[in-house]
Design a protein around this nucleic acid. Structure first.
Lengths: 153, 153
DNA sequence: ATACGGTTCATACTTTCGGGTGATTTTAGT
DNA sequence: ACTAAAATCACCCGAAAGTATGAACCGTAT
């Protein structure tokens, strides 16, 4: 009984293995026959993915700012506290500070000169010194730096 | 936006070049020798393009909606809240706002152009519009006004 | 008295800005 | 499909800004 069963089981297993082998060979053959198609498909899929990924990476998200509701601008009650120690540290003189403030409010060299009753050249000299001390090269940079340092409001 | 188009145009050109190359190879009877490579390349390029196109066409543009309120304190502790209604009122576009902010931090036209991947001329155009809308004639004035209006921090 | 910092001014030169104009290409909305 | 707004770019020109250098004057602190 047991022997017969073993035989049957043995044959069964062999058959199964053979069938599996056949299937695999068939599949392999198929794959081999259509190798180009397979590769093409692979490449297509891969590059399709890459394309989609690339596009997503390179596309900037469109920022749409909606909504409003308001009024009320700057808080005029909050007092500005001048960072005197920073001014001293940078060695900025009184006159330079004056020019710096005027410049920050948007006056041109000519206008500052008129307001301070000096020559435009003097204003330029002051500005050069200011730029040196703040280590910048442009008005806008000077304004930004002076603001963050608490030198001007 | 432009970058996307540039990308597509770039791929178009690449495709054209590739086709020309194919012609040449065909003439040289090399096409068949490297047929697989050629096809693979073609497929790759085509599906890369298709992927980009698909992503662009089928993907809904991500829209960031910023909801804001009011009250603006230029206090170092308080966070800056953009005055959106003022921006809308003045008709300042997103790109213009970008340029405005960069300018306020002290960048030159050239530097802004590099950062935004556009021509310096474009920056100048944006700035002109900004000055018009803010009714000013100089950067420093623009910065000051934009700040007091709560348009920039 | 004199050395020093702050202020003033000048000249010459280069670079950056800003105005004006016009045009093309996207993108969005009717 | 058509239109309006937004974004891009170009070219010219004059004005403003910035660089470099030198110099004079004036208090004041050593």
């Amino acid at each position: 009984m047991i022997r017969k069963n073993r035989l049957i089981i043995g044959y069964g297993i062999s058959l199964a293995v053979l069938l599996a082998l056949l299937r695999w060979m068939e599949l392999k053959y198929l794959l081999y026959e259509h190798a180009f198609m397979v590769y093409a498909l692979l490449i297509a899929v891969i590059f399709l993915t890459v394309g989609i990924w690339l596009s997503k990476k390179l596309t900037r998200p469109r920022v749409k700012t909606e909504i409003q509701e308001n009024i009320i601008y700057r808080d005029s009650t909050a007092a500005f506290i001048r960072n005197q120690s920073m001014i001293d540290e940078l060695g900025i003189s009184f006159r330079e500070l004056e020019v710096l403030e005027l410049m920050a409010t948007g006056y041109s060299n000519q206008e500052m000169a008129s307001q301070l009753y000096v020559s435009p050249n003097t204003i330029k000299t002051h500005l050069s010194r200011i730029f040196e001390k703040l280590e910048v090269g442009r008005r806008a940079q000077a304004i930004e730096k002076a603001r963050t340092l608490g030198i001007i409001p």
